[in-house]
């Protein structure tokens, strides 16, 4: 068993780890103080991916970020997948484990996307029950991340921030606040991102995500932003981060860049900007 905990994630910039950056990170990580992996990419039995984690975990605390547990699914959690997550967390002993407020599996088909759910008392109960099961199986607290939304459900009768607050209160889970997702959802659904942050239960935040998005329009010409993790963080999202940190105090800040992954130097420049935002807190 490894020990990538160092107790908790530091209040420094981190990056989503990509295998092509291994040598750069080992040589000079710049301001990067911790690394996040997508859990599902490290569920093989051995070989280079796990060997790289073995080396990196000697230098960095880790966050394990699941993208496939389908916590918002109508059906039961996939017991095999939960067992794989436990195996990975028991081996790596990360400082943090997080997953999404979304679903991705239905009738045993995994759809490889983070799909939305309505916000009602019925879905609060379903998500809370699933989080209880995750936390008791893994033997650790998890963080739950707010989604990027492209549409709303007619049946929703509570706000996303109230939904997250109730989940955190019921389960004792922490929250992963994705500031880019807040900006994307607020733009797409026509509300103020600052008012979302004002209403968000910031006391429960254990980590903040920052990433890039693409710009499109819907059939009426209204802006439609699409979460892509394939570009620089835009200025309004940096501004929303500053607004958030002024209220929350410093937090572990992650730069997510998952598609069209740039050279390490580009990620370092992005983390320097995150470091500056933390220094101003």
């Amino acid at each position: 068993m490894l020990d990538a905990t160092r107790k908790s994630l530091p209040h420094t910039p981190g990056v989503g780890y990509k295998a092509q950056h291994f040598n750069d990170i080992m040589a000079d990580a710049g301001p990067v103080g911790w690394l996040e992996i997508h859990a599902e990419n490290y569920m093989g039995m051995g070989g280079r991916p796990l060997a790289q984690l073995r080396h990196l975990s000697e230098k960095f605390p880790f966050s394990v970020h699941g993208v496939g547990l389908s916590i918002g699914g109508e059906g039961r959690l996939d017991a095999d997948h939960l067992a794989r997550l436990k195996t990975l967390c028991d081996w790596l002993n990360p400082a943090s484990f997080s997953e999404h407020l979304a679903w991705s599996t239905h009738d045993s088909a995994f759809l490889n996307d983070l799909l939305p759910l309505p916000y009602t008392q019925a879905t609060v109960k379903r998500v809370a029950d699933h989080i209880d099961e995750v936390q008791s199986t893994l033997g650790r607290q998890m963080l739950l991340e707010n989604p990027s939304s492209y549409l709303a459900f007619a049946e929703s009768d509570m706000s996303e921030t109230d939904f997250l607050a109730e989940i955190a209160a019921r389960t004792g889970c922490g929250l992963l606040l994705d500031v880019n997702n807040v900006f994307v959802s607020a733009t797409n659904l026509g509300y103020s991102p600052q008012e979302y942050i004002d209403a968000y239960p910031l006391d429960h935040v254990g980590e903040i995500h920052l990433g890039g998005h693409d710009e499109d329009e819907d059939e009426t010409g209204a802006p439609l932003l699409i979460d892509s993790h394939g570009a620089h963080v835009v200025d309004p999202v940096w501004a929303l981060l500053g607004y958030t940190l002024a209220k929350s105090g410093p937090k572990p800040l992650l730069i997510e860049w998952d598609t069209d992954v740039p050279e390490w130097a580009v990620l370092v420049e992005e983390t320097k900007r995150a470091e500056t935002a933390l220094a101003l807190t």
Binding site: E40, N41, M43, G44, V67, G68, L69, S70, D78, D80, H81, R84, S104, T105, S108, A109, F110, L111, N112
Partner: peptide
């Protein structure tokens, strides 16, 4: 044949 597992590898 949609995926039957989140382990996409």
């Amino acid at each position: 044949h949609p995926p039957t597992s989140p382990v996409m590898m």
